[in-house]
Structure formats: C-alpha cells, structure tokens
Amino acid sequence: MNLTLRVWRQKNSITSGQFVEYAAKDISPDMSFLEMLDVVNEGLILSGEEQIAFDHDCREGICGMCSLVINGKPHGALPATTTCQLHMRFFKDGDTITIEPWRASAFPVIKDLVVDRTAFDRIIQSGGYVSVSTGGAPDGNAIPIPKEDADKAFDAAACIGCGACVAACKNASAMLFVSAKVSHLSLLPQGKVEETRRVLNMIGQMDAEGFGNCTNIGSCEAACPKEISLDNIARMNRLYAKALLKNKLS
C-alpha cells in the first residue's frame, strides 16, 4: 500500500517546527507502524535527508518508550494498543496520516517526535515508592493480602508511564498517571503506611511540573494503552482530601 505522511519535524527544542510531507511507498500491511517509519527513514537517509527521530525501544508494548500522536490520537485509534503494536493493516491504501509529538508544556519537544518525559520521573521521586531499603524485609507471606486487592493494585500498576494520558488530555493533565501510582501503592498494606505524605508530595510535584487540571472527561482513559481506569483518579481525589485533613488534624 502507498500512504502520505504528514510528519512534525523540529530540529531541536529551541527552533520552531513544521509539518513535512513524505510518501510511504510499498508498505506491507504486516508492518508495524514503527517498521513503516523505519522504511521511510531508510529511504530518507539514502536520499541524503536526516531520518525522522522518534522514541522506541522494546517494540512489544511494555516499555512505554514509544509515543506518537497518529491522526490526533495518542498511539493511534486502535484501543489498548501502543504505537509499536499498531499494524499497517489498520490503515487503507492512499491514506494520509498525520504524525505529531506528545503536546504538553511539561513534555517539551527535544527533536521531531521525541519529547522529554522526565517530569514523570520527578513525580515518582517525590513519593511514588515504599520507603524500604534492601534487607530486613519480612517474609513475603507475613502480610496476607486479599486477592481482590492485589488484583486491583496490579490493574493500577500496569501503567507503562508512556504519557499518552497527558497527550490525550486537552489540559495536559497527568492525573491518570499519578493516580495509577498512588492507587497501586495505597491498595497494598505495604504502601498504605506512607499514603498521606505520598499523596500530598506527588500532587505537589505534579502541579509544580506544569501539568493541567482534570476536567473529568476521560480522554486519558480512552487513550491509555493499558486501560488504566478513571476510578484511580476518583480514588486519588478521595485520598488527597483525607491526606489534607489527616495532616492537619494529627
């Protein structure tokens, strides 16, 4: 199949970018979206033009490195699928595909389709962990955890930190990402201990990074390749109120 790509090209974080059109010829429907870009890049290099820069690594939908907003949708239109797992058979011969980077002030563009997502790491640094050092942990079976709680915690922990939630949100809010981590740890007895300071500190850092606010629409949930639920946001809203009061009253 033959396609037309409109790709955002931007030399670096300082210069402004623009869309450039490329023809993607003889694309096999069995290719993944990134393999299609590989083919386009090979052609660009041979014609003396610098390749399109995009983030990717595992190419099996788990590392969270790949991004790309494809026709206005983070990771493309196929639900519960990362860009690396999206295959060209979901497009039609002759399609024009617009490819853009994640857009958010907190995720500045580094080059072309590559953005800086270290804001997420800083949010985790502010409290997204259980403060236990190596050694001295009690036996793994010392604290029984109801299967339902462990399953719910897993559902939240399935987040791959790709940032599609921020990219999808018209306010570039990071609530789904932050609430997934808060929920994962709060649902387990090990994480419950530090819940108050975790919630307050992580939300403080989230605000400081310049992410927008949640307006309860759900674009994030719809775009999430791991189907992280909006329930996590509700849970975090609840925990934040609790944390504020607890911090005040105790």
Partner: peptide
C-alpha cells in the same frame, strides 16, 4: 528467597491466592 521478600515489601503486586498468600 530474600528477593521475593524485598519485592513484596516494595509493593510489587505478585499474584495471590484467595487466602491472601503468594
């Protein structure tokens, strides 16, 4: 054996049985 203990303490959501054990 210590690895499992350490990971559980960190909040790794290992699969559990209905009785709550790993």
């Amino acid at each position: 054996v210590s690895i499992i203990d350490q990971c559980v303490a960190q909040g790794v959501p290992f699969a559990r049985e209905y009785g709550g054990l790993l």
